[in-house]
Design a protein around this nucleic acid. Structure first.
Length: 284
DNA sequence: CGCGTTTGACCGGCGC
DNA sequence: GCGCCGGTCAAACGCG
């Protein structure tokens, strides 16, 4: 592939957001596979993006990740009929999707495969959240246990994409891990779905996140959706959860800077998702 | 033996 | 209809 990023997909040349809010306000629909292209705008050009207290909420749900938001990029991951119709003011049947979708993507797809789909019913996908990680290891330690169920070569990339599924029972959260072909030191991890269980306590002992999430183990997307709700209130825009899409973060991984990184994250409002607003007052 | 990984086959969506 | 591609399945295999 050459340098041209001119595709049938929406051109990502226009896709530089400084906050999740920007992303959500945008009607842009970005395919997951376009993340790779989008990333080239973000990793080093925006090493210290403004961190909104809201988008940090997502990170809480993966307490093992010490993430620094770089360029949050919203991607519609919904397979809803036409993305063009999916964004914007769609008031379709998905607004109440946040609490009843425990059946998950996997079962859905499997059922669709083996039983055939209902007429006119399309497979729905969870919104996805992508993280960029500068790491030599592909597997991020995010506190959850994953089982690899597939690996595929990625077109135009020498690096394969690995598919993982959460090993927890009835948890259909999946993630994809691949390396950026433009910068092999960058690992792109995409989470899909939400955890409805606590973080396994076997890793590194009890974590803050485990307690905080214990009530429902919300998961990264849960917060994301909650953020959307906040965003909704702030902006009075109907935002379709399903079209909320992918948000991209960058993580510094595997060295002593982790902690400071984490501190930075917290300082920037990491706990907004779970900590009363008084903790955030200093920011506003 | 249980759990996780590997890997080729298979399937569905999509563009031509 | 055909081919490409992304995603998933599942048997075989490895490891502790």
């Amino acid at each position: 592939m050459d340098d041209q990023v001119d595709h049938k997909n929406t051109s990502l040349d226009e896709v530089i957001f400084t906050s999740v809010a920007d992303c959500l306000q945008s009607s842009l629909v970005m395919d997951y596979n376009s993340l790779e292209k989008a990333f080239k705008f973000s990793p080093y050009n925006y090493p210290c993006q403004p961190i909104s207290p809201s988008n940090m909420g997502q990170i809480v749900n993966y307490p093992y990740l010490n993430l620094t938001p770089i360029s949050p990029i919203v991607s519609s991951s919904s397979n809803e009929a036409d993305p063009k119709e999916n964004v914007g003011d769609k008031s379709g049947p998905m607004e109440n999707h946040n609490d009843g979708d425990q059946h998950g993507v996997d079962e859905t797809s499997k059922q669709l495969t083996k039983q055939g789909k209902e007429k006119g019913e399309k497979k729905e996908r969870e919104a996805r959240v992508a993280f960029m990680t500068k790491s030599e290891v592909d597997q991020l330690e995010d506190g959850y246990r994953w089982r690899k169920y597939g690996q595929k070569a990625v077109k135009n990339s020498p690096y394969p994409r690995s598919y993982y599924r959460c090993t927890a029972q009835k948890c259909n959260v999946k993630k994809r891990v691949e390396r950026s072909f433009q910068d092999p030191s960058i690992v792109i991890t995409t989470y899909e779905g939400k955890h409805y269980h606590p973080i396994p306590s076997t890793l590194r002992g009890p974590m803050v996140g485990e307690h905080l999430l214990g009530h429902h183990g919300s998961g990264i997307l849960h917060s994301f959706k909650r953020y959307n709700q906040q965003f909704l209130m702030k902006n009075q825009h109907p935002v379709n959860y399903q079209s909320a899409g992918t948000v991209t973060y960058q993580q510094s991984h595997g060295d002593s800077s982790n902690y400071s990184n984490h501190q930075q994250v917290v300082d920037c409002g990491l706990l907004q998702d779970i900590v009363p607003s008084k903790f955030l007052k200093h920011e506003s």
